[in-house]
Design a binder for these strands. Structure first.
Lengths: 219, 219
DNA sequence: GTCTATAGCGAGATAGAC
DNA sequence: GTCTATCTCGCTATAGAC
């Protein structure tokens, strides 16, 4: 609680300092500054996914980026902020890309679009997905609520699709909320076993999962 | 490998010392010795599940049990052995209980039995399940392989059921392995949202999931 | 069988030189 | 903008008293 307030204050301060610095200078000669921060986030993403948030030290992240540990604190107020930013960026990207899906002509088409989108997006960002599911508990309460709210907006999209198909008499679903949970868990599960050099292409996997999804909702 | 042998040797040593002490004395007044080890495992299970293996300190486990940190090392050679024993015990329990399921009269009945068993068992041991999925990466290679092999034996059971139903013309399944992965992910997902005080009983949840499973395999 | 005490190490984070 | 140096803290694990 106290730690939380302290953290928010620090995050605000850091943001202000960082923006002021960028807008105040016209030079662009030393481009490492613009690329260091993304590289820190990339390294943190990969290391957190591989070893777990708690198991990764700031020193490891720094080594991976090629800077000293102290340098990290020019770009983030602390380790927790790094995690939160990764999760928030991931969830926002998920919602943004979902919003770009074209309006489907039918609930069935909308469900297929969602199925293929979910598999593709989650596969492409498997590290972020893994962190999103595993490290939520390491977020302080306020941050946790924000990420959780974004996740629920994503689930709500699928629920709406299912509800429409049910109302139109196309789907047979005993419980819309449970069906949404079940389908998302099933689709996300692809990440636990799929390998690029396996016997199936991702498109083929999409096809097979779509068949199972379609049958599961009784269409 | 070395660590494991070391652990067994030490556990044996400890057992011998302990027995010698008890048999040498007639008293039984201080019974804490028999209960301390299980209590350590219980505490570790709960804390690992809640905060993650790397985030939990031996001091926290000791505090939870009500002993000093140093005392833990009378019952386990190190922290990693604690994790491995929890995972192994869980997986063995899963396989043992699966083996007690009565022979089903048909592949459809066998699939229903599996579905309900999986939901019930995984719900009852959610902490161990969570650790099994999250903390595998914290195991050293040798330990990892052992747990992984047990998991594959469990999956093989479901694949066999699906294959039989497919051969009998009861199921329509484009790919048996993918269907097994998909169903297990879907069923395990119950743990992420189910609450004892929610609107649905676990039996009702089993019913609803079984309907979805049955339709997904085309039966 | 549990305690206190501590060795030895590495963590997160900060200060100030350049 | 990055470095070196360092503060303070908590960790795993061990030693030895009782």
């Amino acid at each position: 609680m106290l730690a939380r307030d302290c953290f928010i204050a620090q995050a605000g301060l850091h943001l202000r300092l960082f923006r002021g610095h960028v807008s105040g200078m016209a030079r662009k000669k030393n481009s490492s500054a613009e690329t260091t921060r993304p590289r820190i986030l990339d390294a943190a993403l990969r290391l957190f996914a591989r070893h777990g948030y708690a198991a990764v030290s700031m020193r490891q992240i720094a080594t991976d980026v090629g800077v000293q540990a102290g340098t990290l604190y020019l770009y983030t107020p602390d380790k927790q902020s790094l995690l939160f930013e990764l999760l928030q960026t991931h969830m926002q990207g998920l919602l943004d890309e979902l919003a770009t899906l074209p309006e489907a002509p039918s609930p069935l088409a909308a469900l297929e679009d969602f199925t293929r989108f979910h598999i593709r997006f989650h596969r492409a960002r498997r590290d972020a997905v893994f962190i999103s599911y595993m490290e939520l508990r390491n977020l302080e309460a306020e941050y946790f609520r924000k990420i959780e709210a974004m996740r629920q907006r994503y689930e709500a999209h699928l629920e709406t699709v299912l509800e429409r198909g049910k109302s139109a008499g196309l789907f047979v679903i005993p419980d819309t909320k449970l069906a949404a949970f079940a389908l998302i868990a099933m689709l996300t599960g692809v990440n636990t076993w799929y390998r690029e050099d396996g016997r199936l292409s991702l498109t083929r996997v999409e096809d097979i999962y779509w068949q199972m999804v379609r049958k599961a909702v009784g269409a």
